[in-house]
Computed example of a mutant assay.
Amino acid sequence: MSWQSALACWYLRRQFRPRTLKPRINVEQARALTAKRAWSPRVPRGWRLRELYGANDTPLHGEWLERAEGAPAANSGPVVLFCHGGGYYFCSPRTHRSLAFGLATRADAPVFSLDYRLAPEHRFPAALDDATGAYRQLIANGIAPESIVIAGDSAGGGLALATLVALRDAGDPMPAGGLLFSPWTDLAATGASIRANDGIDPMFSGPAIALAGKVYLGDTPATHPYASPVYADLHGLPPLFIMVSSTEVLLDDSRRVADNARAAGVDCELEVWTKMPHVWPIFAPFIPEANRALDRAAAFVRRVTTHRDAAQPSSAMSMV
């Protein structure tokens, strides 16, 4: 564990976790604090940021990070559709640029960060509708499904997985893979790590998870497979790559998905990193472990978009 990672955990434990101990969620405060503290890295040399906020004539609401020489096109290499985290009620593509930029440059893949609608103004299934709509629009724009990886972190990781399930159920062509960073896949908060890692996780208290779920769900049951894909049948999904920390209250949200995916015959690799903060790749380039995690994530993107036909089901789990 690097000193940079230890510092990030120290900061989160003192500045973020105490807010998750409160009996109710203050959506407006969370959004205001995030906007105030959000750090946006410079656009990498040779790349450009193209914002599509307020584009009412397309399901692609968000921003592209793409090579400066042109927009993504068919057969031009991998493309990542990224769903940001934030409990479905705060954060945005802007708050997650460090992760998206780091992934794009390492994978040499344009990344579209989706600005999906947020709860409680737009409850389930608004985010899912936006994600499936964005994927379909990418295909309509000429990008081959086998070139696309759907990625996400935390709530966005759960959304990415739910999007794969919904696309399969609707008969859409499957993308090349799913990349999940500390995904939130069980809004019912039934995983054993919700209790076992409560007090160990530097960012979240265990009881806060179910509270956050209610903001997004409204009257929808927390076990709905499109909201909590840990309860979904995962057969027929493309390869999955999951990263999570050993100390997260959401650890079992990843472990159970990996077990379910493998049982369904899905190629799934799970990496459990030791004592990292929740979604530590977002701290790139400051945390060395974030840089290494993004290197591995980018390798997955390149692998599944280049050699998908050669992929074999995996039962790999590693501790990092």
Rank of each mutant, 00 (worst) to 15 (best):
G236L: 15
P225R: 03
G199K: 03
G171S: 10
T190S: 12
S245M: 09
V230Q: 04
S246T: 14
G218L: 05
N197S: 14
A232L: 11
A208P: 01
D233S: 09
R195P: 07
L240V: 07
L237Y: 09
Y231I: 04
L187R: 13
P238I: 11
N260I: 08
A232T: 06
G199R: 03
G171M: 10
T247S: 12
V215Q: 01
M203G: 02
R256Y: 06
T185A: 10
D198I: 10
D253N: 12
P207C: 13
R255L: 10
R256Q: 10
L187E: 08
A258G: 03
R195C: 10
K214S: 03
T220R: 01
H224N: 09
G236C: 15
D198A: 11
P239E: 08
A227W: 06
Y216R: 01
G191T: 15
A196T: 10
S254L: 06
L217E: 01
P225H: 05
G213K: 01
A208Y: 03
V249N: 06
L180R: 06
P221D: 00
T190K: 09
D198N: 15
T247I: 15
P239V: 11
K214W: 00
A196C: 09
G236T: 14
R255D: 05
I200D: 05
T247Q: 11
V230I: 15
L211S: 05
P221C: 01
G177H: 11
D201R: 04
I194N: 01
S205D: 06
L180G: 08
F204T: 08
T247C: 14
P173M: 14
S193R: 11
P225N: 05
P183A: 13
G236M: 15
L251K: 06
P221I: 02
S182V: 14
F181A: 10
E248M: 12
E248G: 13
P202F: 02
S205P: 00
G213D: 00
I200K: 06
L187D: 06
H224C: 10
F181W: 10
I242V: 12
L251F: 07
P238N: 07
Y216S: 04
G206M: 03
P183H: 10
V244Y: 00
G199D: 02
A261V: 09
N197C: 15
A208H: 03
D198F: 10
S246Y: 07
A192T: 13
T247G: 11
P175Y: 08
L211G: 02
G171L: 12
M243C: 04
L237I: 13
Y226I: 05
H235T: 15
W184T: 08
Y231D: 03
Y226E: 04
N197Y: 12
A222D: 02
L180Y: 05
L217W: 01
G177V: 14
L234D: 07
A176E: 10
G206E: 02
D219T: 03
V215N: 00
G171N: 08
V244G: 02
I194F: 06
A212K: 00
G178Q: 11
D169V: 14
L217K: 00
A232I: 08
L217D: 00
S228D: 01
T185V: 12
I209T: 03
L179I: 13
V249C: 12
Y231P: 04
G213Q: 00
N260S: 14
P221G: 00
Y231W: 07
E248N: 14
P239H: 07
H224G: 01
